[in-house]
Structure formats: C-alpha cells, structure tokens
Design a protein around this nucleic acid. Structure first.
Lengths: 259, 259
DNA sequence: CGAACACTTGACAGCCCTCAACGTGAGTGG
DNA sequence: CCACTCACGTTGAGGGCTGTCAAGTGTTCG
C-alpha cells in the first residue's frame, strides 16, 4: 500500500519560498527541541538538569520514513508515542467494511500515538506522507519519568487533553465551505506556530485524504477550493496554497474553530 | 436556560423494570466505587491502603444537580474533573453563531472535564439531564497523588486516551441509520457494563440533543427510529427503548464501532 | 381543561455525493 | 527528446439522502 503520490515529495516547488519538505530545523537537536511538544517541559527551568538528561536519554530518533511507509499499524502492540520531528504523518482507521477514515495530519512538534495508551494496541494506522523523522518515547519509561517530574506529567496531561478537543473539532455539523476554510486556517496556524509562512504552504496530503478527513468527496474539496479562488480568498496550484485574504477565511472558519 | 423537559425526569415509567433514574448504587460508597472510572485503581491490590485513603480524602461528593442545572460553564476556571456518580451529564459547546454542538453524554462511572486540562478554562458547558450526583476531584491534588501512585497516573492516561478515541468515534462519514444504530448499541453497552439492562433502557436526552450529537435533524432521528421499529429491530415509546434484535443492530453499527 | 412542549409525520428543496469524462503533471522507456 | 502511461485532480450532469418548513399528535402540568 505504498503511496503512489510519493514522487510529489521531491517535486520542484511551484511557488518560490515554499520549502518542499516541511521540516523543523534538524541541524541541531536543541533547536529542534524548541519546536517539539515537550519543549515547554524540556526548556522549563523547573526541570532539573538530571531530569532533562533522562528525557533525552529515553528519546530514540528514528527515520527517515519515506512517503507511504507505515510508522505503526492498527492492532500491533503499543509501546511508544512519538513526536514528529520532520514531515507529515497521517493517522487513520479502516472500518469493518474497508472504508478508511482519516483521523488527523500531524506536523513537526506534534505527538502521535496518544490514542493508543488505553488499549495496549494501536487503534489506528500511521503512515508518512513525505519524508518523516521521529522522536520515539518508550511509553512505560516516559510515564515512569513523569512520576518523578510533575511538569512532564502535566505536559502529558495537557497534550492528551488537547487531543480530545482536536478530535472533536471537526465533529460538528458544518458546511463544506466552513470545513475547508477551517482546515486551511488551522493548518496555517499550526505551520505559523512552527515558524513557517502562514500564507504560503504546501498541502502534504492528497485531495482524497483531505476530503476524507473533512468528511467530503474529493470533488467537493476541489469545487470549494475553486470557488475560494474565484472569490480571491486564495490561490491554489495543485498542492501549493497561497492565502490571499486570511481575515475573510478566518471569519468563515470561526464557527468551526470557535474564536 | 433551564431544560424545559425536566419534568420528564420523574416521569412514570412506561416499560416495567426500567428504573426512571439511571443511577449506580449510591447506598454504599464502596459499592458505587466499583463502577467508577477509578475502580481499577482503587480496588487494585497495587494501591496501598494509604494511597486509597488519600484518593478518597480528595473526593468531594457534590449534588444533587437537578435537570437543567449547569455543572460547569465554558470559560470558567478549570479546577476539577468529576466522575458521574448518578444521572446523565451532557457536555456541549456553543459556537460563535450560537449553534450548539453536543460533545457527549456521560453516564455513571464516566469522567467529565478531561478536555479542560489543557487550557486552564473549561472549553465546554456541562449540564445535568436528570438528577446528577458527582464525585469531584480537585485536579492539582489528584495529579499530585498520581505522581506518588503510578497506577493512578496510568489510569488517568488511559481514561484520557480513551476519550480521544471516543471523540473520534462519530467523526466519520456515516449514514443516518449507522449513526443511530451505533449510538444505541454504544449506549446499551455502556449501561450493560454498569449493571443495567442492555436491552431496556431510557434515553435521558431529548431528541434534539441526540440528533445534535449525531449531527442530524431531530426529524431524521425520529424517522430512523420509526423505520427501526417497522423492521422489528426495537420498540420505542417516547424515551423508553427496548431493543428486540441486538445482533442485527450491532451489525448495522459495526462500521462505526469497529468490531 | 387548556397551554406548552416534545415528538412525529408529511411535503419539498437543497446540498453534496456519485458517476463519468477530461485535463494535468511526473516519471519512463524508446 | 518525446510519446506514453499512470495517477491525481478538475469539471460537469444527475440523483439521493437528509435538512427545512409546516402541521398534527400526544403528554405533562398549571
């Protein structure tokens, strides 16, 4: 089940200033860590030098995973969560009738595997959409460390709590336009928070995956994007997006994003 | 914003053997605790007597909340999570345009407030659908205790992880029939797990709330239930449900529930 | 007994999905 | 270097599911 769109990864960029591979600075571990989900803990003064070393000791840097490669599979034994270090990860479930349901797209600094803690087995698949680097944390160890480092425990609680909210984000009954707008604004903000341009970026997932995530037909996503382009909200060329009128897009998305 | 359907709470039951108020045994704290979300921890031999006493010490029994009463409101400061001890709690958000989105219905033994840990404020409202009793846990304290009792921490992780999955449960793109069937089967199983009949129960929420949760119009829920009744899958009388053909209902719900 | 409310039922319309055909870009092999 | 292939993406036509609007029924409570 290799992603047939893999070639897109190394594609020449259409827009200038758009880095083809979305990647946090991985030239230096410390710089990377500042964008990671645990940065608030790692860099907090409350965390002693020993604790910090312990956290770094239990990190296992893995990858690169090439586009289409599985990071973990539904049903396999859960043992670790992972922070995305570079690239994009898609998580999804396949129901009893073979229908796929995309759960989310995970950017650098975000965690995957938190929904697996409950059942001892991964409840979903995770696959790389482009070249992905990970920081793996063996869960029993990081949980153990969390009992010694309250700030780490608190951060884990917060991240899981956030995921509960994220999972419910698109659960509401919104129009196709609202969904697409909300996704674009959300994606823009997440990229922006990691230091990327909020207005020029590349969608690392196929239209089919995006549509699936938004509970729509791929054709609908296409049509909505076309309409947005006609309305001068943005410009789209394949997977490259440039947002021209972020405020208006945000107002369309406000119902979904609640702000 | 008092629930106008409150009178339904004390309504005479239509079906025999259906207890009007869904409530775990609260005649005895220990018996109740066996159905609570923390029972695995409390009753685990791994938890010392001292730890057990500490957990019970930081519990604050609150209630009763009458139908329509708020348990917490969106935007107010987060300070505690709570286990439902009796009754049903509805959690919901109101978007910028005033549209309500129901996040879930919480039965005895289930936790509410886990999605608030991240932001310091409750991101949603929680309201009693009937007479509700709670066990409140001041979060900083239970988190503190969790650092001393790894099993408690693990249980908190598991419960939050489970909520991530639950939030995504109905996120998929399913038909009206599949949604309603999945809700009924899920509700039945949750009741069953708490010792109630899996085939005869009372829906404690209005059609409007149920429809909202399932992302449908109330009329659609009505029509689906009517069709299920015509197909001999169940019998419905107002809010009382008797499931006549659970296997077939489960097969309709299998796509959503994934089993 | 009447008012209020929840729920049901029917008619109709609209959004979006399905199906189909076409366009486009990237990689391949001659 | 270019035709070819393949998959992704787009565009158009048509239909179905489900939402909306409206009226009717049943139940509770004053």
């Amino acid at each position: 089940m290799r992603n047939p769109d893999a070639h897109d990864t190394a594609a020449r960029v259409v827009f200038p200033n758009v880095d083809p591979s979305i990647v946090a600075d991985d030239g230096n571990d410390w710089v990377f860590c500042s964008t990671c989900a645990f940065s608030e803990v790692c860099l907090a003064q409350g965390m002693g030098k020993g604790d910090l070393r312990d956290l770094h000791l239990l990190v296992e840097h893995t990858g690169p995973y090439e586009a289409g490669q599985f990071i973990f599979r539904e049903g396999t034994e859960f043992n670790s969560i992972a922070a995305v270090r570079a690239g994009t990860v898609k998580t999804f479930m396949v129901d009893s009738q073979g229908r796929e349901q995309v759960l989310g797209f995970h950017l650098p600094g975000e965690l995957i595997g938190l929904n697996a803690i409950d059942g001892d087995r991964y409840p979903c698949d995770a696959v790389a959409l482009d070249t992905v680097m990970l920081c793996r944390f063996y869960f029993p160890k990081i949980a153990m460390l969390a009992t010694r480092v309250p700030k780490l425990q608190q951060q884990l609680f917060r991240l899981m709590s956030r995921d509960i909210g994220n999972a419910a984000r698109f659960a509401g009954d919104y129009s196709a336009d609202e969904r697409v707008a909300a996704f674009l604004v959300g994606f823009s903000r997440r990229l922006s928070a990691r230091g990327f341009s909020p207005t020029r970026f590349r969608l690392t997932m196929s239209r089919a995956d995006l549509a699936n995530y938004l509970r729509q037909a791929p054709e609908t996503v296409s049509r909505v994007l076309r309409r947005f382009e006609d309305d001068k909200l943005l410009e789209v060329r394949r997977r490259d997006v440039e947002i021209m009128d972020l405020p208006r897009l945000e107002s369309m998305a406000s119902a979904v994003l609640r702000d």
